[in-house]
Structures are given as C-alpha cells and as structure tokens.
Amino acid sequence: MAAPPRADSLALLDRLMAALQAKGVVTPAEIAERQANTDKASPETGARMVAKAWTDPAYRALLLSDGKAAAEAMGVSMAGAPPLGVLENTPTRHHLVVCTLCSCYPRAVLGYPPNWYKSFAYRSRAVREPRAVLAEWGLNLSDSVEIRVVDSTADYRWMVLPMRPAGTEGWEEARLAALVTRDSLVGVAVPAAA
C-alpha cells in the first residue's frame, strides 16, 4: 500500500502553507473549498455517461465525438478541464489507458486516480505487457481482440466506453450504470451482467 507521507513532507507542507498565507496568496478556506469540490467527483459520473450511451444512440455519438460536451450534458461542470476523449471498445478492440510519464486521468468524470494507476509498476508495464497486467487482474482477452494501449501523454484525458454486456436487454439506465465499474472505464476490466 502507499506509504504515509514522511515527517519532512508534512513539515514542508506546513511551512509552505504558512508562507503562502502570510503573503496573502491563499487562505485555508480556499483550500478546503477546493478539496470539497474535488472530493465530489467520482466514477459514478463516467458510469452514468456510459449507461446513457448504451441506451441513447444520439448521446453515444456525442460521447464519442466530444466527451467534454457529453459530460456537460450530464450536468458535470467541465470549465477549465482538459478535453475528454472517449475510446470505444468493440468485439475486436479493447482499450487500456495509462500515463507512462505522470498520471494523467479523467478526474472530472472518474474522481481521484487510484494508487495503482499512479504506481511505477502500472506506468511501466501496462504499455509493454498489457496482456500480462490484465491477466494478473483476472482479465484474459481473446487473441482475436486487439489490445490498444493508450498512453495519455498530452492535453487530453481518456475514458473507455466499454461494450454493453449481453443479457442486459431492456435494462434501465440506472441499472446499467451500476454494472460500469471504474476499472472498466480505464480498461483493466470489462462490465458483466452479474
């Protein structure tokens, strides 16, 4: 598990915050407000977008052509957020998102990136041996499926549009959304009807 911050890091944060406050640059209230806002973002947003795309062809087209507008259509404020690209899985293509250089992640629609996404092992291995990484996590894709690793290196943030599982015909959006896990929006899992 991720180690707790070192004492010298806690002290550095205290010194920096004190200095910034003394200079009138930031206030604790601003930090608290921003933190509360950030805490609200969650993968439920991405899951709702996917479920809507599964049931509404027009929304699906919007999602694939302009992820940011599709998020806004769900009531998510994307002001100042990077462009959101959405990658469509098909029976012959599976997308897996990684950021080898840092940890770029579609936070507006998925929330904070999990620790494993930021880990050195994921950042180095996903791009080179995606099948081994996926297999370790229990996802064994057929050899007939192209695995397309998406290295998130620049200005976009990427989310996967997984395939709708068989056996979900006629389901309502909310029931479908409950199948869409955060992992399936990154590409380390696929949704399944329980």
């Binding site: 080179r128 041996e129 099948r131 998406v150 290295d151 620049a154």
Partner: peptide, 23 residues
C-alpha cells in the same frame, strides 16, 4: 499516433497496438 506494439518491445502479440499523443 498508432504504433504496433511488438516492434517497440520485441515482445507482445502481433496486432496489439499503442496509441500516443504526439505534437
């Protein structure tokens, strides 16, 4: 930009790819 995975690493399954944002 799309790259075939196997030539990058000399391992991997032919047909698998890596897509990267490049300026």
């Amino acid at each position: 930009v799309l790259f075939a995975q196997e030539p990058l690493w000399h391992e991997g399954k032919p047909g698998d790819t890596v897509m990267v944002e490049v300026f």
